[in-house]
Amino acid sequence: MKIKIIILLITTFLIIFFAPYIGKKEVSSGVYKLYYSFSEPYQSNVIRDIRIPQTLMAFFVGAALSICGLMYQTLFHNDLASPFTLGVSSGAAFGATLAIKFSFLSFFYIPAAPAYAFIFGCLTVVLLIALPLLKKSFDTFTLLLTGVALNFFYAALTLLVSYLSNYSETFHIHRWLMGSIDEFGYSNILLLAGLSIFIIGFIYYYREDLNITMLSDETAQTRGVNIARLKILIMLVTSILLAFCVSLCGPIGFVGIICPHIAKLIFGHNHRITIPASVLFGGAFLCLCFTLARIIIFPFIVPVGIITSFLGGPFLIFLLMRNRSNI
């Protein structure tokens, strides 16, 4: 077990370190020496200002999506739960669509699409927490069906807005919905890194609660887990993290469903290990996918959401073919 963890750590580190250098020609081999010196302006600027931030962004977004997926799979006792199950990302997508269609100006110096995506994502979180509170029931079915309903509701609104848009707007909306990692400044990355690390730490604190929750809600309660509070807390923090990721990169599919599964297949079910393992797998996987997206159709950068879903689809079928009890 320890060896597996060390291998995973080293692999992840290597991927993050070398991913920025893979790709278009601008970067010659000599630039490795210049990693921190930036003495050759053009090449090093490509690395420093574009590739490194993009790689770091890919890592943190992948890690965040993966941990959200793991949490939803645990809380809902459902292997097919993904970060998008509850409709937070559909809400964010609708927010971005509105911002693009009506050409909203920036929101307190933040670009409009991410800002409105984040606002609508958070509104959805509020709905998700408030509706079961009103019904006084946090059972899995209520939550999952609320998520399904919200997903359809937002999908309809998004389609309506994009139907009413002109060609250029529709193109932007469509592009946004594919999910991609664009050029980001370091401030966004620092913000996401801080938020991710804080929330992952928060979730890790509840690792034993989550382990017991896997058994059944009833058993968890009689062992002293406050299941309603745990669900609200975890849903709240993961949804905020998710809304933030989606507002930056759009809905990048499948990372959140397959990475926790790979972690569970290799490391078993204990959250003491699956939490860090999912984080590393998710981050490393999205870094790899993004690198692939950069080089696959040179000189274009394919939206990374296409690559993840392309790889994720067959993997999900592979999982479904396996005996469920082995997962």
Partner: peptide, 27 residues
């Protein structure tokens, strides 16, 4: 109908100690 995932007997019985643990330290 209770799902047990891949808990071993020992791990399952250990969950009985949950009310006594310090969350930072674990079992």
């Amino acid at each position: 109908n209770i799902s047990f995932f891949n808990f071993t007997v020992f791990e399952y019985v250990l969950t009985g100690r949950f009310p006594y643990i310090n969350k930072l330290a674990g079992y």
